[in-house]
Design a protein around this nucleic acid. Structure first.
Lengths: 225, 225
DNA sequence: CGTTGTGAACTCATTCACAGCT
DNA sequence: AGCTGTGAATGAGTTCACAACG
């Protein structure tokens, strides 16, 4: 652990080893850095800890994993830290994504500023409903789900966002994979079976509400978020 | 650990002790039980494990925490298990929620079947935009955000769902709390400061996409979901 | 048999506490 | 003085492996 990390694009500080939880917090630190645009240019682990709701030791442990970014006695350079986190997360570039299932949720995601702010661009829209095909939303024309494999490849999309009803999720996922996507953000409450090379992140909104109900019910203490 | 658990509404098997992770999985087991309505009436830990994407030992450990629900050599009675999970999660009753910030995301949540299926009812809609106030959506009239404290109390809502821009999240949360909500589902990417008695669950959609980017970038192995 | 429930081992994650640099 | 980086201690969560039971 004593490797002088001088290269700007070096051996990546072994980012693949970061825990799931650490990676999630990195996103949060990044959000905090972006919003409270500190003129001074430096943040302390305690600053970040407070704005994200974790301990300062946790922040230091997380950031130490990215390399030697802090200055003892001073703190972290906000801009450099943001850059390092972006690089680690893999969002120091743009990602092209397609969205399948054009309902209200899809519309919400399309307009969600947080996405293009972080370099995610929706480049294609698909739906199985003939009534929706051909409609234009935010400059994109809704195409038939049948054309997903070909069009995803043409559009060079690496990510797919699934906002279709549960029963269509698996087949649509398969056509996205046939088109070459490497990752799927799945809003349908089902487990997708995918090849190992394709990563899936699931967001189940009903589950979130159930978690909330549980905690209210039992007045569970512990950190928010 | 030998207490005969005979009462139907007994000491609740100390549900408050369940870990965050266990509670999340309980929701998933419940989802799986609901969809694959097994006629036979029994499920094994392996069945559940496969449909949710965890190990069978994990399932047994989780379910054992709810009491002695399984029959050795047989499995779990699906209906009884679903009932026990619902009771533990606190969704063996209905919950009244209000929604603040009437954008596309709110519309998506309003129509989301998963919510009323699990006993969550949206009973009020609020927005700060005068152009939206007075509109009717799904039988609910959008009211002014200014009226939140009074109206939330009148409506007897226990939960609030926040789909407002980040900068309004904190003040709106405070007015919800003034109205008496005990839990908030927050879609704004900021940490809410709330009294200890008010529970918060945060859902940050941009963070989910960033997690996906990270995993695709590093071809991270490990379980999906 | 088949399947649960669970002690014990193990792995992963967080906090403590302080040496080390600025 | 202030704040990071990190070994050591602790705690949480998961898997192993098997006895217990229908």
């Amino acid at each position: 652990m004593d490797d002088a990390v001088n290269e700007r694009r070096g051996p990546d500080t072994d980012a693949a080893k970061l825990s799931r939880a650490t990676v999630r917090r990195l996103s949060q630190y990044l959000r905090s850095l972006g919003s409270s645009d500190r003129a001074g240019g430096t943040v302390s682990s305690l600053d970040l800890a407070r704005s994200v709701g974790v301990s300062a030791a946790q922040v230091r442990r997380d950031l130490a994993a990215l390399g030697h970014l802090g200055q003892r006695g001073i703190g972290y350079d906000a801009a450099a830290l943001a850059t390092a986190i972006r690089r680690t997360l893999g969002i120091d570039r743009t990602w092209r994504a397609v969205l399948v299932g054009v309902g209200n949720l899809a519309r919400a995601l399309l307009r969600y500023r947080g996405f293009h702010d972080q370099g995610f661009f929706i480049v294609g829209l698909f739906d199985a409903d003939p009534a929706k095909i051909g409609q234009t939303i935010d400059g994109l024309t809704v195409e038939s789900s049948a054309s997903i494999p070909i069009r995803v490849a043409e559009l060079q999309a690496e990510l797919g966002i699934l906002t279709v009803p549960s029963e269509h999720a698996q087949p649509v996922a398969e056509s996205l994979i046939a088109g070459g996507v490497k990752g799927i953000l799945n809003f349908a409450p089902v487990l997708l079976r995918t090849p190992d090379r394709v990563r899936v992140v699931a967001v189940d909104l009903a589950i979130q509400l159930e978690q909330l109900a549980f905690r209210v019910q039992h007045a569970d203490p512990g950190p928010d978020l």
